[in-house]
Simulated assay, not measured.
Amino acid sequence: MSKQWADSKDGAFKRQVSAFKEIISPEHPVYKPAAGRYWLYVSLACPWAHRTLITRVLKGLTSVIGVSVVHWHLDEKGWRLAPAAEAAASIDKKEFYTPSGGITTSSNDASGPVGNISNDSSRLNIDSTFDPINGFNRLSELYYKSEPNYNARFTVPVLWDTETNTIVNNESASIIRTFDSGVFDEFIPTAERDQILKLVPKSLEAEIDEFNAWVYDNVNNGVYKAGFAENPSVYEKEVTNVFAHLDKIEKILKDKYEDLTEEFSGDTEKILSHFFTIGDQLTEADVRLYTTIIRFDPVYVQHFKCNFTTIRDGYPKIHLWLRNLYWNYPAFRETTNFEHIKLHYTRSHTRINPLSITPLGPKPDIRPL
């Protein structure tokens, strides 16, 4: 179930379609908004799960929706949680809501993973957290509890309903739209509601959707199509396509930066406060692109052979955009864990990296702004 690519006669990567796609709304017959009712299961390594973590923080939902983090190592049985079922029975699950933001686990050493960290390591709240809702040790248990005959991969993220004990949604794009929809706003402290940013404002929705569509196919998923290709010609086609679209993004951001420089007479602080992919505010488009670009230099360059150049050396405006989000917006920095990212890819994909040796570079993981 942990296989990363579908069977394909041409050696091309085929991504699995998500199985659970319910929404949460006051009109839904079952899944209605409530504080403390829904729980998010994520991997800090996975870019799709990372989207939901960032959005959860940006939308002020850290005290409304709790989080459990799976272990960075994906083995033959799929994702696993910390083996702490006995503790789960006694812990106050509110401890896992982390109202101050971010995530419940943090091991963000800028030097990257060092030493002989075992794939079976169980550093609680560093490698993974446990499941205080069900006491499960495996993500697969959530899937089988929801659908006993489930027969596909056990993917993250998972949005779980604690009342019906079932998966509501396991599609990241749908989950972040639900978070942004406003259905949980009433549970956010009144003083904070006016500060919550709408990530998909109506005036920009069509432009965001168009941007997301080609970025997803050619960049977000494009690095996987290159990295998991099992045919040289497929790889060469896909990696060339990835960089063609990075060139396109670089041009968009370069033009945006030049316009802002003129508008704000070179005031760097004002420029960066408006320096985003779509419009002049932070949007869902930035969130979805960020989770791929932050992994590009540490992982995709070497592990997925996306090595025409690095972001830091070949794309100055993407690099500036990336560092601006990471250093100036805590929701991005607090949910980015380079140790999980590096260890997961290099030690879980043994077909790509049989010796499971984790490169220590690049150094630093991300450069200062």
Rank of each mutant, 00 (worst) to 15 (best):
N119G: 13
N241Q: 12
T291V: 07
E269Y: 05
S140N: 06
A49Q: 05
E76N: 14
W72E: 00
Y329M: 08
L260C: 07
F228I: 00
D209E: 13
I278F: 10
E236S: 13
K225F: 02
Y329L: 13
A244P: 09
F184A: 04
I278W: 03
D259P: 06
T309E: 00
Q302K: 08
S18R: 15
H319V: 00
F130K: 06
F96D: 01
F211N: 06
S68Q: 06
V69P: 02
D180N: 12
T261S: 14
Y38F: 15
A12Q: 11
E284L: 09
N125H: 13
S172F: 01
V168H: 02
S100N: 14
L360P: 00
K3I: 07
S233P: 01
V30Y: 09
R51F: 00
N353S: 06
I208P: 10
N165W: 13
S18P: 08
R288F: 12
N165Y: 13
N353M: 01
R56G: 03
S121R: 08
D7H: 15
D185N: 15
N169C: 14
D127T: 02
F308R: 15
C306R: 03
T358Q: 09
L360S: 14
I271E: 05
E192Y: 10
V17W: 01
R193M: 05
V70T: 13
S203K: 11
Q281A: 10
I249S: 04
I352F: 09
I65A: 02
T178E: 06
S107F: 10
E186S: 15
T358L: 11
L322A: 06
A34M: 12
S174D: 15
G135K: 06
P201L: 01
P298T: 04
L325M: 06
R153A: 03
C46T: 04
M1F: 08
A12S: 15
A89T: 11
R56S: 03
L246V: 06
T335F: 08
T104N: 13
T358S: 12
L58G: 04
C306N: 08
Y224K: 11
P83S: 09
K202E: 15
K32V: 04
K14I: 14
S265N: 14
R333K: 15
Y329A: 07
C306K: 03
T166G: 13
H319T: 01
Y235F: 13
H349F: 09
P29V: 01
V57Q: 14
L74K: 04
R347P: 00
K198P: 07
P33D: 07
L260Y: 08
E210P: 01
E22G: 02
A110I: 15
L369D: 08
R295G: 00
N134H: 10
F187W: 03
Y345V: 00
S2A: 09
Y235P: 01
I23L: 12
F304D: 03
G112P: 00
L320E: 03
W160C: 05
N221H: 12
L369G: 02
F136M: 05
S68I: 07
Y41C: 11
N125Q: 10
V69E: 13
I249Y: 03
P298C: 08
P368T: 08
S107K: 15
A173E: 11
I54E: 02
I252V: 15
N125S: 10
S265Y: 07
